[in-house]
Write a protein that binds this DNA or RNA. Structure first.
Length: 896
DNA sequence: CCACTCACG
DNA sequence: ACGTACGTGAGTGGT
């Protein structure tokens, strides 16, 4: 669909987009390398690169909105560079045939899309791009270049931006001359000289021995160019570097030639040739059909531009109204599919707009949700013997509850199933989820309802079609999804954890937690006074008034007006984060006051004001737990987020005083797991030392301190040692690095490294676990929790060190964080069951990752004190004990 | 709509 | 040499 936006939009004046076709195709190929076998056309052609190329192209076109486009390709192996240096790009692996077979098809697709592609004998794509960008600049175009190859950044100028592709399909890093300076310390043209000194491993030509980016950048910054450097090389004082520079002069001179992009290559293309043309819809349709690209075919159909018919599947339906509802017979089927439509994400408040129902092969739709309360429908919804397939059990349950319907037999949840099968895409939209499984017969809500202010229910026909498609697709994809769950050994996770927990969460959300507005208002008044005082003092010291909430303006005051040293920079300017301000505290009293202001302003805006707006007429706040969002299996909480209520500072903690029990003299009771993640680690790693520590009930951080500092008795552990050991333990869970640890503790990297080395020496099986976790993720393509929750990690194969390292740390962390999430979910299910069994009035009201919070009537406190820790501790059986600590009080603040 | 900052586990 | 801790949501300013 994006493709057609080009012509609908008024075209930008004179914007030239140049794409390095081989480079982008290469990235596209490897982005879906894992899916190579899944992406084949009916006639056996691999299509992963073509498919991703189109997606990347759409993203780039949307981002750059060009009037002219050219995609440049390499013409072959022999170029003027190989004549100059025969090993140029030597030793490179041959392009895999699975990719090369796709290149002609990409060019065919470009042609059909109305985009010019071009190659030139003896020249590389780089040179075509260099030449065209020069032509473009001279003709007054702004130029965007897209490539994965950093060589091209030498073309950046005030008119040309070089976009380097990153991991995500549409993600790029924009190289302007300024950005170039930040990254390499040199200008784009100087970058050629830098490369002359460094050489290029991937293109297989050497530079000067022992000179890498750091040295090269320093030298070029000092001398300006290779030539100037050699003019002054004799003046350098004696060093190995000087020797190398002199010895390798020839190499440097040659490397400069190889690195320089030819901006005057004999291209036969004119700028007029690059003008974006109308796509050829029929050819595109044929191509997509040949390749089996349902997604893009659907876009052609949906665009309305199409002259062809391309019927997307339609589902027949009957409209139910108050007039014909009586004709509906009693529903006796064992299984039906149901969808409740509302306009908006927040199902506690969003207007209910309609529903659809599939009974056997008939689909019913309606805009009149009140009909659900009528006999045959209500009966069906409240009959637990009639199993309902839905998309999002929790939403459906809460929505029906608002209609005073107690839904029973909600049995299959397409959203939950799809989330467990693969949570890489965490969309909560039925249409988007269906598209993941190649079903394009249902649109997304965004397409049908629009977004923002213009969001609305469309005309009846379109709305009903949408509703009908939804139930049809829920049913259609049920078996495939259930089979996938079985294949993944996730049926247990799905049936015994996620489905039951959906109901537990629904009930918690419906209950909500009581919040005293008067407490928040009082706090708000106090904070307002403090803020005003601080504001006044800060303006006085700054000598002017400014917007304290603007990092930009604050940066100007601190680092330009008051000349404090700018410790850290961000993409857009000076960093003014806590980390930076803490270091500046000593230099000027204004800094401490800014920190105080920030802290209080945050509490005031986010918590006092934010929470007040969320209190409903029943004096309660009803958050929503997102059950299908996180990559690890944790919940998240929105509207409002009740999982990040302040606890670390005293001012912040005051907020908790507003969270109160709903009964007179009742209690807020809180019970949290002690060190779950470390206990999970002790369990999955099988490390005897750590297991022993937990079994003996030692203070784990003190124990770690003894180990890493080689102490004999706990008495020798100082508070500082314990603090350090605690940070090491956290670091282990996150997939530690010496840099991260040193930053966290404010110690040297070397010292951090010693801690880590000692740790691994003392807990060898932990080290072993980490290595194995990475290895397993590489082999399987995913990491897994104790309950078989998966997280796919395609980046684990990345050639990019950073990207790969991140995936490796994730492979270590996800099973730990995810297993802890599994455990508390089990505890929640058991807890709700226990509360029901004992007919208690106590309600479970909040979950904060390792903590459960209850609203307890006075006379149930003793029971709760006993059963909650019992249930939590026995949720699963690990090789180490699970411990949960309880606290209670007459508000959340006092439950500490 | 993104970047920054900061609240939580 | 690489440039880093893991997982979230919300308010604000500025384009």
């Amino acid at each position: 669909m994006t493709v057609f936006l080009f012509k609908e939009k008024k075209m930008a004046q004179k914007k030239l987009l140049l794409i390095d076709g081989n480079s982008v195709a290469f990235r596209a190929f490897y982005a879906l390398y894992r899916q190579l076998d899944r992406f084949t056309s009916p006639d056996g052609l691999h299509t992963n690169a073509i498919f991703t190329f189109k997606n990347m192209l759409d993203a780039i076109m949307k981002q750059t909105d060009p009037s002219n486009v050219l995609v440049a390709f390499d013409a072959g192996k022999v170029t003027f560079r190989t004549k100059m240096y025969q090993d140029y790009k030597g030793g490179r692996q041959k392009t895999p045939s699975e990719l090369s077979e796709q290149l002609p098809v990409i060019r065919e697709m470009l042609k059909d899309l109305g985009i010019k592609s071009y190659e030139l004998k003896n020249y590389e794509a780089d040179d075509i791009i260099g030449t065209l960008s020069k032509m473009g600049e001279e003709a007054g175009y702004t130029v965007d270049i897209v490539t994965g190859d950093r060589d091209l950044t030498q073309l950046a100028s005030d008119k040309t931006t070089v976009l380097i592709t990153k991991n995500g399909v549409g993600d790029t890093e924009a190289y302007t001359p300024e950005h170039m300076k930040e990254v390499n310390g040199v200008t784009p043209t100087e970058f050629i000289d830098m490369k002359a000194l460094m050489g290029d491993n991937s293109d297989n030509y050497p530079g000067v021995t022992k000179v890498g980016p750091k040295t090269a950048s320093r030298l070029i910054q000092k001398y300006g160019s290779v030539e100037k450097l050699y003019e002054h090389v004799d003046e350098m004082k004696k060093s190995k570097l000087k020797e190398n520079l002199i010895n390798d002069k020839d190499k440097a001179i040659l490397a400069k030639k190889l690195a320089t992009i030819d901006r005057d290559s004999p291209v036969e293309v004119t700028l007029a040739d690059t003008k974006l043309e109308e796509p050829n819809i029929e050819d595109l349709r044929n191509l997509y059909e040949r390749l089996g690209f349902k997604k893009f075919l659907a876009e052609l159909g949906a665009s309305g531009v199409s002259a062809g018919k391309q019927e997307s599947e339609k589902y027949e339906y009957l409209e139910l109204t108050r007039e014909n509802i009586a004709d509906l017979d009693k529903i006796n089927e064992k299984e039906v599919t149901f969808y409740l439509a509302m306009l908006g994400d927040n199902y506690h408040l969003a207007p209910l707009e309609g529903f659809s129902l599939k009974v056997s092969d008939k689909i019913y739709v309606s805009k009149d949700v009140v009909l659900l309360q009528e006999a045959p429908l209500r009966q069906m919804l409240e009959d637990k013997k009639i199993k309902k397939n839905v998309f999002d059990i929790k939403r459906t349950y809460v929505g029906l509850h608002r209609l005073d319907i107690d839904a029973e037999g909600l049995d299959y949840d397409m959203l939950l199933a799809s989330y467990l099968v693969n949570n890489e895409n965490n969309s909560n939209d039925l249409g988007e989820v269906a598209h993941l499984y190649d079903d394009y017969s249902v649109k997304t809500d965004l397409e049908v309802y629009g977004k923002g202010k213009k969001q609305a229910v469309p005309e009846d026909d379109e709305f009903f079609e949408h509703l009908a498609a939804k139930v049809a697709v829920i049913e259609k994809l049920k078996q495939p999804l259930l089979e996938k769950l079985k294949d993944h050994e996730q049926d247990d996770l799905y049936e015994t954890i996620e489905i039951p927990v959906a109901f537990v969460l629904a009930k918690m959300e419906i209950t909500g937690i009581k919040v005293e507005a008067s407490v928040l208002n009082q706090l708000g008044n106090d904070f307002a006074v403090k803020l005003q005082e601080l504001e006044h003092k800060i303006y006085q010291q700054a000598g002017e008034e400014f917007n304290l909430n603007s990092p930009k303006q604050l940066g100007h005051i601190l680092f330009e007006k008051l000349n404090l040293p700018p410790i850290k920079k961000t993409k857009t300017g000076y960093s003014t984060s806590v980390e930076v301000l803490e270091q500046l505290k000593m230099k000027s009293p204004i800094v401490s006051e800014i920190l105080d202001y920030r802290q209080i302003a945050k509490i005031q805006n986010t918590y006092v004001k934010g929470l007040l707006e969320c209190i409903q007429p029943d004096s309660r706040i009803h958050t929503r737990y997102l059950q299908t969002l996180t990559a690890t299996g944790r919940l998240s909480s929105v509207d409002p987020n009740l999982q990040n209520i302040p606890t670390r500072t005293d001012e912040g903690k005051q907020i908790r005083k507003a969270f109160v029990p709903s009964t007179k003299d009742g209690y807020i009771f809180s019970c949290d797991y002690s060190q779950v993640e470390l206990r999970v680690l002790a369990h999955v790693s099988g490390d005897e030392h750590m297991q022993e520590a937990f079994k003996s009930g030692y203070d784990i951080h003190a124990h770690t301190a003894m180990k890493i500092f080689h102490l004999d008795s706990p008495d020798e552990v100082t508070p500082l040692m314990r603090r350090h050991a605690k940070a090491v333990n956290f670091g282990i869970v996150y997939g530690i690095s010496d840099y991260g640890l040193s930053k966290n503790l404010g110690i040297s990297r070397k010292q951090a490294k010693t801690f880590i080395d000692n740790y691994f020496e003392q807990y060898p099986q932990i080290k072993d676990y980490m290595d194995k976790a990475i290895k397993k993720a590489r082999e399987n393509g995913y990491a897994e929790t104790i309950m078989h929750r998966r997280r796919y990690l395609p980046d684990i194969h990345s050639k990019n060190f950073n990207v790969r390292s991140f995936a490796e740390r994730t492979a270590i962390n996800s099973p730990i964080q995810g297993s802890a999430a599994d455990i508390i979910k089990i505890a929640m299910i058991n807890m709700q069951k226990k509360l029901d069994e004992l007919h208690l009035k106590t309600k479970m009201v909040l979950q904060v990752h390792d903590e459960l919070i209850f609203d307890v009537p006075k006379d149930e406190l003793d029971t709760i004190k006993k059963i909650v820790p019992e249930v939590m501790q026995s949720a699963v059986k690990l090789d180490v004990p699970l411990i949960a600590d309880s606290n209670w009080g007459h508000n959340w603040y006092d439950a500490k």
